[in-house]
């Protein structure tokens, strides 16, 4: 099939970028969207032009690297799929496709379609973990967790950190990402001791990074390749509010003697 691509090209963080148009021919329905980009890049290379930089790695929808805004939809038109899982049979001959990077202040531009998503790492650093050092764990079956609870926790834990939620959100909010981690750990017994601290610290970091707020448009849930529910945002809000009221920083007196 023939397609017309409009792809965002920008040589670096501090230069101006623009949409370049590339006519494509010989695209096959069985190709993945990224394989079409491979084809385009091969062509550009042989023409002596610089290929388009784009993030990708596993190409099976789990590493969270790929991030294309495809004609206004994060990861393109297929629900519950990443860009690398999108196949060209989603399009038809003669289609025009716009490809842009995720756009958010908290995701600074790197090059072409590549942006810096390290803000997500810093949100996790703020508290997205259970503080247990290696070696001290008790037997795994001593902690009883009902199937329903662990399933709900797993739904949230499925987040791949791709940033589609931010990209699709009209406010560039990271609420779905942050809420997913707070929900994953907040539902489990292992996550209880640090639940308040975690919610406070992660939400604060999310704000520091410059993400917007949640207006519950539902766009994130729709764009999420793992179909994480906005229920996780509800949990984050509640956990944050409860923590804001009841959490008191511990006094620095422990360990005396």
């Amino acid at each position: 099939m023939r397609l017309t691509l409009h792809v965002w090209r920008q040589s670096g963080p501090n230069t101006a970028g623009k949409l370049e148009t590339y006519p494509m021919d010989g695209v096959e329905a069985d190709m993945s969207f990224l394989e079409m980009f491979d084809m385009l890049n091969d062509k550009l290379t042989l023409e002596g032009k610089e290929p388009i930089a784009f993030a990708h790695d596993c190409r099976e929808g789990i590493c969270g690297s790929c991030n294309m805004m495809i004609s206004g939809q994060a990861h393109g038109p297929w629900k519950g799929a990443t860009t690398c899982q999108l196949h060209m049979r989603a399009f038809k001959d003669g289609d025009e496709i716009w490809v842009e990077p995720w756009r958010a202040k908290a995701f600074p531009m790197v090059k072409d379609l590549v942006v810096d998503r390290s803000a997500f790492d810093r949100i996790i650093q703020a508290g997205g973990y259970v503080s247990v050092n290696t070696g001290g764990a008790r037997d795994a079956n001593e902690i009883l967790i009902g199937k329903e609870v662990v399933d709900e926790s797993m739904d949230a834990a499925a987040c791949i950190g791709c940033g589609a939620c931010v990209a699709a959100c009209p406010n560039a909010s990271a609420s779905l990402f942050t809420g997913a981690k707070i929900t994953h750990l907040g539902l489990l017994p292992q996550g209880q001791p640090e639940r308040d601290r975690r919610a406070l610290a992660m939400v604060e970091q999310m704000d520091i990074e410059g993400f917007g707020h949640c207006t519950l448009t539902g766009e994130c849930q729709e764009a999420c390749p793992k179909e994480i529910s906005i229920d996780v945002i509800k949990r984050m809000n509640r956990d944050y509010a409860v923590a804001a009221v009841r959490y008191v920083e511990p006094k620095e007196t422990a360990g005396a003697g």
Binding site: G72, W98, A168, E219
Partner: peptide, 8 residues
């Protein structure tokens, strides 16, 4: 974005 397509 140059192109937006809100879904829901």
């Amino acid at each position: 974005y140059a192109k937006t397509a809100p879904q829901v």
